[in-house]
Design a protein around this nucleic acid. Structure first.
Lengths: 225, 225
DNA sequence: TCCAATATTGAGATAACTCCCATTTTTTTG
DNA sequence: CAAAAAAATGGGAGTTATCTCAATATTGGA
């Protein structure tokens, strides 16, 4: 049985190299999900993609690299979905709180992918940058709205992303409960010198979290609206 | 030439197991320092410690584990030295600022060990806990002194440690300059709702950083005072 | 159709890690 | 306190995984 999945589907009309690469990524998703990151072997990924062992190394340097890339794609997909869910939400602080809490809630509902994403984040600066871009937009909006006075620069955004990842890790380890998202949101807002009462309000308000889906699901999810 | 170093010296009068373990740790220090973490091989460490390959695995699960343990010991040594340097410093916030800036300055002056420590931090929860313990003492002092109003719990301390590590990583990557220590200190103090002006003062005041030494130096460093 | 460029292959080199038995160290017993 | 039993340790050959590279196959353009 030939492996196929979202990456393969996406690359259907590209050249052979891209198609093989996509098959390897779909296979990696499969194997990581089945065996976990540590136990997964490059051989097994190659076997599942029905390519020779050496072919893997033409496309990816090692297991970390493919994990990083797959994780980055998943993270990108999730953040896009979160953006979708926030259409019409205008307050910058509310947007930041929603995105943070939704991201942590999702990643901790899928512990395996949560770990892969965290692991990838420490390897692939690109992934940090990706999250930073999304986050940056809301933070700068906050500055325009006059809610944030601190200057938004790379160091600050990197720090915030690290705090969110730390909260996610604590959640996955079981050291923090479902309130982790709210807590870290409040801490970040305090850090930005938002008045404590407002920070608390934003971080702990009732919100309805969406049920996000992994891009690794069969495409049938796109049927009805 | 038989390897010997601080761990071996320390274990001189312990049982054979402890002595072999110590030799492996000294050898690991040597090899990591010479070849870097990735290039270091377990065989090379075992050879340098003059034990058989398999003996390594009696004492440590793998390369990560020994790196984590060595890094934890070095981090412990550094934090002890920082504590020494802070004797007589009574203000909790000043203490926190000094320790943070000194730690980042030291670890970024020894990039190899900086990376090993960061790597270890994600493997060895014990190491986080170690830093948390030291930090916790100062934070709780700050609460007693009435400077900090936030409640000091595990989540908060974990978040702070993660912020410090993130700043260190940014420094090592070259994304942040020597001011990284001050910046992260200020951000943490803001997060704790310290008045911004005071936070800025604490974080950016002139301090004299000590020249810390790795525990891996020959013991001759202890000659004169 | 042919050719140059590109992609794939898989056996082999190297390193990580396991396993079992001889030896050493520690504990128990007479 | 000495000898025997039990436990821990060390050695190194063997197994498995990672990664490379020279040979082979495929592709797509002229």
């Amino acid at each position: 049985m030939m492996i196929s999945g979202p990456f393969t589907a996406e690359a259907r009309h590209q050249n052979k190299s891209a198609r093989t690469r996509a098959r390897l990524m779909d296979a990696a998703v499969e194997v990581f999900a089945r065996d976990g990151f540590e136990a997964a072997s490059v051989n097994e990924i190659a076997r599942m993609a029905e390519v020779a062992n050496g072919t893997f190394y033409v496309h990816f340097r090692d297991k970390n690299t493919i994990a990083a890339e797959v994780a980055a794609r998943i993270a990108a997909d999730i953040t896009d979905q979160i953006d979708q869910a926030m259409v019409g939400l205008d307050d910058a602080l509310d947007r930041f709180g929603f995105a943070t809490r939704q991201f942590i809630a999702f990643a901790s509902s899928q512990p395996l992918w949560g770990w892969v994403i965290i692991r990838a984040a420490s390897f692939l600066p690109e992934m940090h940058r990706q999250m930073e871009t999304h986050m940056c937009a809301d933070l700068k909006m906050g500055r325009r709205q006059g809610q944030i006075t601190a200057e938004i620069d790379a160091f600050l955004v990197d720090t915030i992303v690290s705090m969110v990842f730390a909260a996610l890790a604590a959640r996955l380890r079981g050291d923090a409960g479902p309130e982790a998202g709210s807590r870290v949101t409040e801490l970040v807002l305090n850090m930005l010198n938002i008045p404590p009462q407002r920070a608390h309000e934003v971080a702990w308000q009732d919100i309805t979290l969406k049920d996000l889906h992994l891009p690794t699901r069969p495409k049938t999810a796109r049927l009805a609206h």
